[in-house]
């Protein structure tokens, strides 16, 4: 649909949230929790952290929660009886106050979960989520969205995007049919915007640090470059912090939890950084050492996904680098691949 532009007053934001809630839409938004910022259900604007650069965790949990029940079953002498969980059993939700890199991160997840036998648990939640992103007025040294095809005012993946254009006013971009539907809920708070308004004046300047095509080509060619991966990952301690805060990491594990009579099957986040991730029952592990796991992390995002799904598995949000206990900085490592590898 053709993009529509409106103006919303900051002072009307509380009313807007109230309207969503009173009309039965749960609102997920960034919330301060001590030093970190979580994405949680909120009841009013007061608890929403709109002043932060980025939430600690990405917004992926709106459609891909860290723990998700996918099956229930009971057991008796006759055998096992399955009680399927309805994937569509979720409410229409507003995901509010996230950043453009969170919204565009769903494009990668859509590609992963939509491929082949499509994943209804993810897709139906995603379908019922309306994403209202806020463009970024500031960025930090970890941000590199513009190097991976995004930007501080990128609208891809967002249904509505708000940009602060003065201390009292927000520019509202209505981008999709879902966004249009959500905007009707607070239509009385919107006024017409001047179509000549230049959004770029109000967003951060994020410098492009590398040429993405070149990084993709060089990463793709580097599978056998053991020295490169070892050099980069020697300080990696093999935790899953990077994968779990990442807006596009989608690997998961299944676990059954049961007693003698009943059980549930759970889908859980997993990470290629863990030594157990590829461990076979035989005891053989095709990714025996951390450098091979680091290679997998980078190649999956910058070689396999571009090749198989036509999308890069990174939004340049830098969350992995911020969360890393040992300061593995993905922007720096990709730049090194760009500079060191010759193809």
């Amino acid at each position: 649909m053709e993009k529509e532009l409106k103006i919303l007053k900051y002072s009307d934001l509380p009313k807007m949230i109230e309207k969503f809630i009173s009309q039965g839409y749960p609102v997920l938004a960034p919330v301060h929790k001590g030093k970190i910022v979580e994405i949680e259900y909120v009841q009013s604007l007061d608890s929403i952290a709109l002043d932060v650069l980025l939430s600690t965790q990405s917004a992926k949990k709106a459609a891909f929660p860290k723990v998700e029940k996918v099956l229930e079953y009971t057991m008796n002498k006759a055998g096992v009886v399955q009680h399927p969980v309805d994937p569509a059993d979720s409410k229409e939700t507003i995901l509010f106050g996230v950043r453009p890199c969170d919204a565009s991160g769903f494009k990668s997840l859509d590609a992963i979960f939509g491929e082949g036998p499509s994943d209804q648990f993810y897709l139906s939640k995603k379908e019922k989520t309306t994403i209202i992103s806020f463009s970024c007025p500031v960025a930090d040294e970890y941000c590199f969205c513009t190097s991976v095809g995004g930007g501080p005012g990128n609208t891809a993946g967002s249904d509505l995007q708000f940009t602060s254009v003065s201390k009292d006013e927000l520019l509202v971009e209505i981008l999709t049919e879902k966004g249009k539907k959500a905007s009707r809920i607070f239509a009385d708070l919107l006024t017409e915007a001047n179509s000549a308004i230049d959004k770029t004046k109000f967003i951060a300047d994020v410098k492009v640090v590398f040429d993405l095509d070149s990084v993709v080509a060089k990463t793709t060619a580097s599978f056998g470059n053991a020295e490169l991966w070892l050099e980069q990952s020697l300080r990696c301690i093999g935790c899953g912090a990077c994968a779990f805060v990442c807006p596009t990491c989608a690997c998961f594990d299944f676990q059954d939890e049961q007693d003698t009579k009943k059980g549930v099957r759970l889908r859980l986040w997993d990470s290629c950084g863990f030594s157990l991730f590829t461990l076979h029952t035989s005891g053989h592990n095709p990714r025996e050492v951390q450098s091979q796991r680091w290679r997998q992390r980078i190649m999956h995002k910058f070689a396999y996904m571009p090749e198989q799904l036509k999308v890069v598995g990174c939004e340049g949000c830098g969350r992995c680098s911020r969360a890393c206990p040992v300061d593995m900085n993905i922007k720096e490592h990709l730049t090194a691949i760009r500079e060191q590898v010759t193809v």
């Binding site: 965790q57 301690i237 935790c239 912090a241 779990f244 986040w269 863990f274 206990p325 040992v326």
Partner: peptide
């Protein structure tokens, strides 16, 4: 409640 079981504590 905040834990995401990334096991960074264990790895560190």
């Amino acid at each position: 409640e905040k834990c995401i079981k990334c096991y960074a504590c264990r790895a560190a």
